[in-house]
C-alpha cells in the first residue's frame, strides 16, 4: 500500500493472492474452441515464420514491375503491391520479423522488469524505494513516447525497435514481480526454508519463481500483442525499419496511402496483425483463467 498505488494493490490482490492452482474437472467447453482456433492460428503463423519458403508462392523481394497493384487473383491470392511484389509472399515472410519483435521485446522487457521487481521486493528497504521510484518515473512517461524517444535516439534497426518496445514494458513487469515476491517471501514455508539455511538464490529459485510464473506468463503473453502494436505504431510515426522484407507493421504503414486505390496492399498485413494479436490475447485470457485459481467459472 505504501509503495504501489492503492489501485494496483486492489488489482493485484484480486488477481494473484490465493495460493496454488487446484485441479478442475476437464471437459471441452465451447469457449475453449476459440482458444483452440487461436492456438492453431499462432501455430500457422509460427510455421510461416519458420519455413516461409515452403508456403510463399513467390520470392518476397521479386518486383514484377509489369504487374503492379493488381487485385487478388488466382496467381496472386492477396494481390500485388506498388512494386509488383506478391503480397501473400510478403505477409508470409513478414511474419518472421513481426514475431521477432513480439517475442524478443517481451523476453527482454520481462527479464529486465522481472529482475528489477524481484530484487526490489526481496531486498526491500532503501534499494526497493530507489528502484520503485525509478519505475514510477518510467511509468509516468507513456510507453509509446519512451519508445519513440529511444527509437529516435538509437536510429533505425530491429534491435533498437525491440529495445524501445521492451523498455516501455519494464515498469509493468517490475511492479507485478515485486508484488509477488513480497507476498511470497513472508509465507510460512519460505520463512521456514530460510530458517533451515537456504540461500536467497535457492529461495528465489525454489519458491519465488515457481509461484510468480503464472502472472508473469500471462503478462508476457498479452505483452506480445502490445509489442507488435507498438512496433507498428513506430512504423506509422516514421521510425520503423526499412528492410528488404518488411514486417507487418511496416507493410501496413507503408501501404496505407493506397487504401482507396488498392485496398489489398495494406488490408492483408493489417488483418494479419489483428488476427495474431487477437489470438495471442485469447490465449492470454485463457491462461489467466487456467492459472488463476480464484476464477471459479461455472
Amino acid at each position: 500500500m505504501r509503495q504501489s498505488t492503492a489501485a494496483e494493490a486492489v488489482l493485484q490482490r484480486r488477481k494473484w493472492e490465493l495460493p496454488a492452482y487446484r485441479g478442475r474437472a476437464r471437459r471441452i467447453r465451447p469457449a475453449d474452441l476459440f482458444v483452440y482456433a487461436a492456438g492453431a492460428l499462432i501455430l500457422i503463423i509460427a510455421i510461416c515464420a519458420a519455413f516461409p519458403q515452403w508456403i510463399a508462392p513467390y520470392s518476397p523481394t521479386d518486383m514484377m514491375m509489369d504487374a503492379i497493384m493488381q487485385g487478388p487473383s488466382a496467381a496472386h491470392p492477396f494481390g500485388t503491391d506498388y512494386y509488383g511484389r506478391d503480397i501473400l509472399s510478403l505477409v508470409v515472410y513478414g511474419s518472421r520479423d513481426s514475431l521477432y519483435i513480439g517475442f524478443m521485446s517481451v523476453l527482454v522487457g520481462g527479464l529486465a522488469g522481472g529482475a528489477i521487481g524481484t530484487l526490489s521486493g526481496y531486498v526491500g528497504g532503501a534499494l526497493d524505494a530507489v528502484l520503485m521510484r525509478i519505475v514510477d518515473v518510467l511509468m509516468t512517461i507513456p510507453g509509446i513516447l519512451l519508445a519513440l524517444a529511444i527509437a529516435a535516439a538509437m536510429g533505425p534497426g530491429m534491435g533498437n525497435i525491440v529495445l524501445a518496445v521492451a523498455a516501455a514494458s519494464v515498469p509493468g513487469y517490475a511492479r507485478v514481480m515485486r508484488g509477488q515476491t513480497i507476498s511470497i517471501k513472508n509465507r510460512p514455508f519460505v520463512t521456514a526454508s530460510r530458517a533451515i539455511g537456504a540461500t536467497p538464490f535457492a529461495i528465489f529459485w525454489k519458491h519465488v519463481l515457481p509461484n510468480s510464473l503464472s502472472p508473469l506468463l500471462v503478462m508476457a503473453t498479452l505483452g506480445i500483442g502490445t509489442a507488435i502494436l507498438t512496433g507498428s505504431g513506430l512504423s506509422f510515426l516514421g521510425l520503423g525499419v526499412l528492410k528488404e522484407i518488411p514486417d507487418w507493421g511496416a507493410l501496413l504503414s507503408q501501404g496505407r496511402g493506397y487504401l482507396t486505390v488498392a485496398w489489398w496492399i495494406c488490408t492483408y498485413p493489417g488483418l494479419a496483425i489483428t488476427l495474431l494479436v487477437l489470438a495471442v490475447n485469447i490465449v492470454g485470457d485463457w491462461l489467466r483463467d487456467r492459472l488463476d485459481p480464484k476464477r471459479k467459472e461455472a
Binding site: 502494436l229 507498428s232 505504431g233 495494406c266 493489417g270 488476427l275 487477437l278 490475447n281
Partner: peptide, 10 residues
C-alpha cells in the same frame, strides 16, 4: 479484443 488488437492508426 478487436479494440486492443488493431493498430490504432489503421
Amino acid at each position: 479484443l478487436l479494440g486492443i488488437s488493431m493498430p490504432a492508426f489503421w
